[in-house]
Design a protein around this nucleic acid. Structure first.
Lengths: 210, 210
DNA sequence: GGACTAAACGGACAAATGTCCGTTTTTATT
DNA sequence: AATAAAAACGGACATTTGTCCGTTTAGTCC
């Protein structure tokens, strides 16, 4: 026996944990629910809960895993089927999908960021998590495409930086602030991202191709 | 008696707390030092410590208050004495000063962000803290100046958004990652900020004033 | 079915954060 | 100097996170 399946009891417990967490989160808000309470509600021990999920962030990660997978697929699919479009439009499209996703899952995503692990650099930071890497990579490619269209070479990892900058602006906290603190609509926020990250690039492109 | 001064014993305790915290932070790293330990080291009770500083973030805030004040003054002074320069150059200058400051205080600033309070929008978030407001305001003014130079009107709060975007990219965590995770030098990071936030604006400007 | 092993269990325990409240000290007033 | 109110004190306590380890259970092999 080389690779064992997840044990039946373990699988059942995970379902119970996820369901209990979801219910409690909905009822009392993510921040107000302790791990202890989730374990109690699910009828499992502390250790059982913690062995599976090292912290609330891990748990949230699993809670949004399905939706994240779908998000990832949507983005990948969009990129494939829009391959013929201009990279600017595609950047705009991806940004729109990110914002839709954040709008949908903002509360859980915010917890992820806060409880996601170390602050120190290296593995364990958000910057090395698969979701971050995935989106960062998508942005890097798009930016490189845009630069290529404009015949502007990429100065040693410039696109890498810009992708980080975009990701930073996409943080759920800021979205919260714009959406509810300042009362902007989702569409208004998308428009701002477009104006700043896409249209400026587009302007450059127009000028560069003259 | 209308306004009382801070009591003598309280003032002394605050000094002891700050000094103890600073020493312990230096010795063991900010994350490794508990509030309990700081209280013990300072020879005061838990309650005394917590009444003054609601959490470690508050304490760090006080620890960097002096340096923040100086930073603020440096920025204000720079803006005054560079009033004749182009807004692009001034934006670059301010960005440089921010990065210098982050580089200097990265560890404490990172704690501030993590432990700074609520995630929910409204007062209590980073976005409403005086330091954030101050820098955000500085960026808004500079961006408006740039737009004015280019004869581009500011579409309803566009500058506000861009300022948030810049602030987001200035988060200590990302700086850490670039600096130590990816091994970039401080100057390289400054160069990236300049290239993305200043030179692109400058390119636009050149084109717009043709 | 019996036995063995790896995985999972769960609750006690440790450590940290943050609160509460009876007690002490400072300070202004007389 | 006595007094009283305001402010500060401090440690016990509650809550939460996270760990440890002896015990139980599912899956496999015979």
């Amino acid at each position: 026996m080389q690779l064992r399946e997840e044990r039946k009891d373990a699988a059942e417990h995970r379902q119970r944990i996820l369901q209990s967490a979801l219910q409690l989160f909905r009822e009392h808000g993510v921040e107000q629910v302790s791990m202890h309470r989730i374990a109690k509600q699910a009828g499992v021990g502390q250790g059982t809960l913690y062995r599976r999920y090292g912290n609330k962030g891990d748990l949230c990660m699993d809670l949004i895993f399905d939706s994240y997978t779908k998000f990832k697929e949507r983005v990948s699919f969009y990129l494939e089927q829009s391959a013929a479009e201009s990279p600017d439009m595609r950047l705009d499209g991806v940004l729109g999908q990110c914002i839709d996703y954040i709008d949908d899952k903002a509360d859980l995503l915010a917890v992820l960021r806060t409880l996601g692990g170390d602050q120190r650099p290296g593995p364990g930071t958000v910057y090395h998590s698969p979701p971050y890497r995935f989106m960062h990579d998508v942005f890097v490619r798009l930016i490189l495409e845009i630069k290529q269209t404009q015949n502007r070479p990429d100065g040693a990892g410039e696109a890498e930086f810009v992708a980080h900058a975009i990701m930073a602006a996409l943080c759920p906290d800021l979205y919260f602030e714009l959406r509810f603190g300042q009362g902007m609509s989702k569409e208004q926020i998308k428009e701002r991202f477009r104006a700043f990250y896409v249209e400026r690039a587009y302007t450059d492109q127009v000028n560069a191709t003259r």
